[in-house]
């Protein structure tokens, strides 16, 4: 099993096979991350696509720690999209559209009311807290890595997480088990 580190090193040395392997390994992760922000599969894929393109075209030395850089690109792209959605006022009752055009997915989502409520509650958090929740809770990264991606101290990441959880607790109190 080749590690990401090894793949990135080979990619930097010009191996197109390495880029292909990176795409294979990273596309699902980036899709999943972007989807948590955007709630739309197609939009999430667009964001992943743009992020991988930037990896392909970015000056090799400019990307720092590659995995951090890739996550950061996705977070920034998602923020931009969410901001422009808000500006256009085109949010249908909340920023997250858990189900998109696919009626099967819409059914599945409707069946789990709790999932829908959670998605909405996360989407309604202030941007700074939402970013930490998505990266920590859903991308399953360490607080150290979350802090690096967001360029904040780890203590700040933790206090944002705490505040976010307190808000989510209030927001989701009717769903409590």
């Amino acid at each position: 099993m080749t590690t990401d580190h090894e793949l990135f090193r080979r990619f930097e040395n010009g191996s197109p096979d390495a880029f292909q392997a990176l795409v294979r390994s990273w596309a699902p992760r980036l899709d999943a991350l972007a989807w948590r922000f955007l709630g739309d599969v197609e939009e999430a894929r667009d964001v992943r696509q743009t992020a991988l393109l930037r990896l392909w075209t970015a000056p090799r030395a400019a990307t720092g720690r590659r995995t951090t850089w890739l996550h950061r690109v996705v977070v920034n792209l998602c923020r931009d999209r969410l901001r422009s959605r808000r500006l256009r006022g085109r949010s249908d009752g909340g920023d997250v559209r858990i189900a998109s055009a696919d009626p099967a997915a819409a059914d599945a989502a409707a069946r789990d009311e709790v999932a829908r409520r959670v998605a909405e509650a996360v989407a309604s958090l202030p941007e700074a807290e939402r970013d930490v929740v998505v990266l920590k809770q859903y991308a399953d990264l360490s607080f150290a890595r979350v802090a690096e991606i967001l360029d904040i101290p780890a203590t700040t990441a933790k206090s944002r997480m705490w505040r976010a959880l307190a808000k989510l607790r209030v927001e989701l109190k009717e769903c409590a088990p």
Binding site: W35, I98, W162, A166, C175, A176
Partner: peptide
């Protein structure tokens, strides 16, 4: 309270279509 919230957050599962990518790499 936070422990309970964490469990609730786990209920939000990814869209099944998100995994299609890996099969179509």
């Amino acid at each position: 309270g936070h422990q309970d919230v964490r469990k609730l957050l786990d209920r939000w599962r990814p869209d099944p279509r998100i995994d299609e990518v890996s099969r179509n790499s």
